[in-house]
Design a binder for these strands. Structure first.
Lengths: 255, 255
DNA sequence: CGAGGACTTGAGCCAGTTCAACTCATGTGG
DNA sequence: CCACATGAGTTGAACTGGCTCAAGTCCTCG
């Protein structure tokens, strides 16, 4: 593992993450302690953060980039069971071994804590453990949403749903022009999309090109897709419009 | 909702569940408080415990029976995203509305607590909240296992996996003879199996009958299947044998 | 006994996979 | 600077696992 450990200890207040889930909305003492323990880790696209079955030695938060949570059947078939984007928690507390491989789907920066130390903090600050519980509850909801998608929806519906999720997940600090033109940033490759949506790159490509031909979207480049006709994209997704239209509801990215 | 509320308050120690996840291994004061709040609820097969989107007014534990956690797309397609068997937690703390419908897949008895009261207890007894976190962590693992199954495995593999999970989940207090003869109790209908495995009753039936013809299993009645050749069933499941053979590992039922 | 539900079986069809070929962008070394 | 390899994405064509529709059996229950 060719990982650069930047030893810089950063205080919670100086945490470079815009929406670092760990460090916001917690009491000052907890924030102080977290800051003392925090370490930055940087991964290049493709690098493994934690292998499947590996011991979990640290937990943390994604500051930038994308991680994929991936499971592999013993014959090699793989499935991405979650994507972690900035603000998401990495790793699992009170679980010695990971049940998923965690890999960088793009260049990624993490804010990490040793799992042991973090768990001690959880014991000292029940508010932190409470936040973990709420976060995990959301992850479980997202996982259940994804099960419904994988089990019942066709490829076009999956792709449409994915694009809508990416649109909602796209950072609110993007240039305003980008937002009104409805450009969705797709942070992962077609291959990862296929592994996440439970299909193949070919099927992904066909669905996307079909949407292009029917004028629903426009491809700027493979990672940037303009949503020309949002309501038709929502129709294609097979979901209730209220799940994607503003006001924001509680459907979340699987993770 | 035609639910009988038996007002009987039961102390944790007298909890009729053999492996009530809430009431075991916790401190005496917490147990006392839980006992004061506990109420028994009984549902007939097919009854709805909590509808999708409904407010969650209580949480609890399954004492007997099976609940299905079910999601419905707005066009009617449905998927069971989890089964709750005795010992499993029902409901979600710190979440006002359910994102799944919870229905009795068989006659079911629950040990319930008002959500509000239970959440207050969680605040007073961090050990309880810690248990919730660990339980939810296991549920999330199971959900991710199930995503892999739904996205990558064929129907025969899904059915084999399901039978193996049922075999492991079968209560250890079954008659000894039943255990050595490897009779798996299937607590749900083919229709629910299909909704859980993301397929149809017809495909379920064909896979099961194929296993019968090849001598892997024997059907005693639709709800009782004898595993004649466990290692071949494990082969069919497409999983690593270590996941199902004793010693018990940490693959769990999706929930 | 008849109705209804659960399960099984058969036959045809189709969405999506597989395999193969192609374009295009990027990078590498001579 | 070009030749070439490599990887990502797209497109075409054929194949197939599982779905759909339809018709059966068996069991339970009123």
């Amino acid at each position: 593992m060719d990982v650069r450990h930047l030893g810089a200890s950063i205080g919670g207040r100086r945490c470079p993450a815009r929406r670092c889930s760990t460090c916001t909305d917690i009491s000052e003492p907890a924030k102080q302690e977290l800051g003392r323990l925090a370490r930055i880790r940087i991964y290049r696209a493709g690098e493994t953060v934690i292998a499947e079955q590996d011991e979990i030695v640290f937990v943390g938060t994604v500051l930038s980039g994308v991680l994929r949570l991936q499971k592999t059947l013993h014959d090699g078939r793989q499935q991405i069971v979650g994507l972690l984007v900035p603000g998401d928690m990495v790793g699992r507390v009170f679980s010695s071994n990971s049940h998923v491989a965690i890999e960088a789907a793009a260049d990624t920066t993490l804010c990490c804590y040793s799992r042991g130390n973090f768990e001690i903090l959880l014991g000292r600050f029940p508010e932190l453990e409470h936040r973990m519980l709420v976060a995990m509850s959301h992850e479980l909801d997202a996982a259940q949403d994804w099960m419904l998608l994988l089990a019942t929806q066709n490829v076009t519906e999956r792709v449409a749903t994915f694009l809508l999720l990416m649109r909602r997940a796209s950072p609110s600090d993007l240039p305003v022009m980008t937002r009104i033109s409805h450009v969705v940033e797709v942070p992962i490759s077609r291959k990862d999309m296929a592994a996440y949506l439970g299909t193949t790159v070919e099927s992904i490509s066909r669905s996307i090109q079909q949407m292009v031909r029917s004028g629903v979207i426009r491809i700027i480049d493979p990672q940037h897709i303009e949503v020309v006709h949002a309501s038709r994209l929502i129709d294609l997704s097979g979901h209730d419009p209220s799940e994607f239209d503003p006001p924001r509801t509680d459907i979340r990215r699987a993770g």
